[in-house]
Amino acid sequence: MNACPEKVIRMMDDYLDGEISPSEEKELKESLENCSDCRKIYQELTRTIAFVQSASHVQAPPDFVQKTMAGLPKESQRVGVKRFMRHHPLMIAAALFVLLMSAAMMSSFSDDQQFAFTKQENLVVEGETVVVPAGQTVVGDITIRNGDLRVDGELEGDVTIVNGQYMASSGVIDGEIEEIDQVFEWLWYTIKGTFNDAVSFFDSNEQPIGE
């Protein structure tokens, strides 16, 4: 671009960037004294910088803050929800868990319209009624879904009836009877069952330690 050695130009740049070593600074000064072309470029550069820096500082218009704030997107509900999810991941996880669990329980309640019962010895089935025949003894818990229970003999154990009923009869039941008809109760029953399982799991775990 000109006759001046590239090295001098490079030193000028370093000098203007404020990154020149003292020895090179001396060298640069000598070059500028000896070469009028170099001097001219240097002077023009410093003048240019001064011009650029002197470009008066402009200010934002007086209503800038107000306009900017008015232009901000209103916090939409979606943003709020998103932020909530970001800040409370545990809560979301818990909510999801409950949702999925209850969905699973509900579906197992409504899909499961089939007649089913716990098989125990001596039990007799008449249509959709489970019968403990007269003169017989059944040992163990019984759960019946979508069916009824009639006890003519003796039952040693708890009874749970879902979507059905216990028909009072002359038999003897040596245990608790529970009838579940509503969705809510079914849910509660399932949760209670899970909880009891968990407790008994811990109990059985603890026993060896206690011994």
């Binding site: 500082h57 200010q59 218009p61 800038f64 704030m69 916090e75 932020r83």
Partner: peptide
């Protein structure tokens, strides 16, 4: 979610950013 705090930030940087 405090928009007023953002207004203070705009106030602070408006001239430099506009420049």
């Amino acid at each position: 979610g405090d928009q007023d705090a953002f207004a203070e930030i705009v106030e602070l940087y408006q001239h430099q950013l506009f420049q």
